[in-house]
């Protein structure tokens, strides 16, 4: 552990000695071989590593899409170990805003409906849902593309819709997996600007990438190799007044 978790405020993410093993016996693969880290509220963290370094596994665990083999993971103070499928779905719904490399919008469904989707599963009433989705679409600059389907939007626009979907539920953390991997440099810059702006508003952003230019925009860079943390560098100070999400 390179950074001591502070007493106050509670870190958004506490990962303690997490391992993840796939397969059995001879074919056993240690994707994560004991990772510990803490991420504070309002931080902007880039997790880097070559393919096979375990960064996707870490991303799945941080996103509550998968559970660690051993070790503990606390998300926003909730111990994820021992939660059942339904509870994990609720955690994903309330605490995490996902952004994927391939955008992962629901096809043939309008942008606004895609943004509303997490709130549908959260049981938010239709009127409130629409209002919050509109705000999110405005904040990513797509207020005029509400009824366009993903196929009618450019890659950069699709990713901005995905960002709007991620922030609409007001999650504890935005988790982005190679968000610029499928975008040209101009669109990449737009999306990264958006992340910076969101972080400036006090949102916690964790992004996984293998590009140095992307990682350079983060306040803190964690490098993984062979399932372990290789280095953990802070480039910019964590804002002293982190706004609680």
């Amino acid at each position: 552990m390179t950074e001591e978790p502070r007493r106050l405020p509670t870190p958004v993410i506490v990962v303690h000695q997490v391992t993840k093993t796939y397969g059995m016996g001879d074919t056993e693969v240690h994707a994560l071989a004991g990772v510990s880290l803490a991420i504070q509220r309002g931080d902007f963290v880039a997790i880097m590593g070559a393919s096979g370094s375990g960064k996707s596994t870490l991303m799945n665990i941080l996103g509550c899409l998968d559970l660690p083999s051993t070790g503990r993971y606390l998300l926003d103070g909730v111990d994820v170990q021992g939660l059942d499928e339904t509870q994990l779905a609720e955690v994903r719904n309330r605490k995490i805003g996902f952004i994927f490399q391939s955008f992962n919008l629901i096809p043939r469904t309008s942008a606004i409906a895609n943004v509303e989707l997490p709130m549908v599963y959260a049981g938010v009433k239709k009127a409130e849902r629409r209002e919050r989705a509109l705000l999110a679409m405005e904040s990513v600059g797509l207020a005029k593309r509400l009824n366009h389907t993903p196929a009618e939007l450019s890659g950069g626009q699709q990713q901005r819709v995905a960002v709007a979907r991620a922030i609409a539920t007001n999650p504890a953390m935005i988790l982005a997996d190679e968000p610029t991997g499928n975008l040209d440099s101009a669109a990449s810059a737009d999306v990264l600007d958006l992340f910076e702006a969101l972080n400036a508003e006090g949102r916690t952003v964790v992004l996984i990438t293998h590009e140095n230019e992307v990682a350079d925009r983060a306040k803190r860079v964690i490098r993984l190799r062979d399932g372990r943390i290789l280095e953990d560098v802070r480039n910019q100070p964590l804002a002293p007044t982190a706004i609680t999400a």
């Binding site: 996103g63 899409l65 499928e85 779905a89 719904n93 919008l105 959260a122």
Partner: peptide
């Protein structure tokens, strides 16, 4: 894939 997306953003079984 759509099912995966829905589950990722919080759809329960």
């Amino acid at each position: 894939r759509e099912i995966g997306i829905r589950k990722a953003v919080g759809a329960k079984k």
